[in-house]
Design a protein around this nucleic acid. Structure first.
Ligand SMILES: [Zn+2]
Length: 268
DNA sequence: AAACGGTCCTGTAAGC
DNA sequence: TGCTTACAGGACCGTT
């Protein structure tokens, strides 16, 4: 599923493909995909000024407002010839001046919403971006000291750091050499510095390779031939640890499947 | 305030 | 073989 690196890749491609183009209108085939229909209708005729990202959200800056898109599990965009046949999983089709752009989402979890005030929209949802200079070890320590949750749950909390999902949460715990079950209020200050470094390294590596799972999102937008990212733990239950050869363990943290090395990753 | 559990969805795979 | 059931999960919301 798309996490920050995948969304970043989609954003770069979308910016190249739709910036400067005029949104004529759109068709809706699954109502709940669109949060506020009237506001979206009001943007017909406007050009896309810029496509950007905040956390896992895709932002289309229009002339008078913003279209905010979350892909959730399986949302993806396909660029189509005008009036091409609709795929049964295309729930919204944006009709641009000289092409169509389909929002395809088998699980129907993705959401498209218009927001006039992004700062307000994200203020309670999202914490700092991974590369924000305000993301410091003191910030993480302070956020964690009143929390009893496991490290993995903390990393998945978008109001702490924005953009980490299930795949990279496991990878970050592995790089940090901490068990995903570590209680965050037990983690010392110096380890939070390492956490920031690990997070940035894991995400940067993933962005550099175009996102782990991004191939399916972008094939139709003209990107092919990307190599899969080297994944150390996610989806590798029972396989040998890349560091010590111990069999990796599959477990559940916060109702999410979790894989870790019982030897390399200790609880504090 | 923080934690928890249910909800939304459907394709895939396992099980009888 | 064909049917049923379990499972995957990001964000959100009501309850504890
Ligand atoms: Zn190991």
């Amino acid at each position: 599923m798309p996490e920050l690196p995948e969304v970043e890749t989609v954003v770069l491609i979308l910016d190249e493909q739709i910036k400067g183009h005029q949104l004529l209108d759109h068709s809706v085939y699954w109502d709940k995909t669109i949060v506020n229909h009237q506001e979206l209708l009001a943007l017909h005729g406007q050009k896309v000024m810029r496509v950007s990202r905040r956390g896992k959200y895709i932002l289309w800056q229009m002339e008078t407002s913003n279209i905010v898109i979350h892909l959730r599990m399986e949302g993806k965009f396909y660029k189509l010839e005008k009036n091409a046949a609709r795929n049964k999983h295309s729930h919204v089709i944006f009709h641009f001046d000289d092409f169509d752009l389909a929002f395809n989402d088998t699980r129907k979890f993705g959401r498209i919403e218009v927001s006039h005030d992004l700062d307000h929209y994200f203020s309670h949802k999202l914490g700092f971006e991974p590369w924000d200079e305000h993301l410091t070890k003191e910030y993480l320590r302070d956020k964690a000291k009143s929390r009893k949750v496991h490290l993995k749950t903390f990393l998945l909390d978008q109001s702490v750091i924005a953009g980490i999902g299930n795949i990279y949460a496991d990878e970050i715990c592995f790089k940090l050499k901490l068990s995903p079950f570590t209680r965050v209020h037990h983690i010392p200050l110096y380890k939070w510095e390492e956490c920031i470094e690990s997070t940035r390294q894991v995400l940067a590596e993933a962005i550099a390779s175009g996102g782990t799972t991004v191939r399916s999102y972008t094939a139709s937008l003209g990107i092919t031939g990307r190599f899969q990212l080297q994944i150390h733990v996610y989806g590798r239950a029972n396989q040998p640890c890349h560091t010590c050869n111990t069999a990796l363990i599959k477990s559940v943290v916060g109702q999410r499947s979790t894989v870790y090395c019982p030897k390399c990753q200790k609880r504090i």
